[in-house]
Amino acid sequence: MPISLDNNMMRAIIMDHYSNPNNKHQPLNDQFVKIHMHSDNCIDDLDIFLLVKNGVVEDACFDGIGCTISTASTDIMCDLFKGKSIKEALYIIEQYQKMVHEEEFDAEVLDEALAFINTSKQAARIRCATIGFNAAEMILKGK
């Protein structure tokens, strides 16, 4: 995906993943690793599930209550992770974190997650935009 995503495209991506999150459901089996996340200052209350086999994220999903930003960002993250090695997934997380904190980042790997490039305009929402990524990082690093 080109980095020249315009604002309307980014809006459409976020609204689409918020209105119709295709990864928002309970896991298909009990082999998924689950982590429960809730925000200190808002009501985002999400479970993140990753299915990791032989060093590869085979599947990812989430469920719970979240705002537009947390729901859409987590849904996109699940799409990004499927089929990626743990190393690749961690690299995506790192680049995404750099992006939302306005540091230099590798745009190549973020695909639709680039829609959250403006998160720092609403600093209070950085926690929403990273809640899924923080959860996934904890799972992948075994914390």
């Binding site: 808002c42 009501i43 985002d44 979240g66 705002c67 537009t68 930003i69 609403q122 209070a124 929402r125």
Partner: peptide, 21 residues
């Protein structure tokens, strides 16, 4: 509209309100 999204929109307009529980 999710309350927190509404509060963010208010923030954008310079208005501080609270959302959540």
């Amino acid at each position: 509209v999710f309350s927190q999204d509404e509060a963010t929109l208010f923030n954008h307009k310079g208005i501080a309100i609270r959302s959540g529980l």
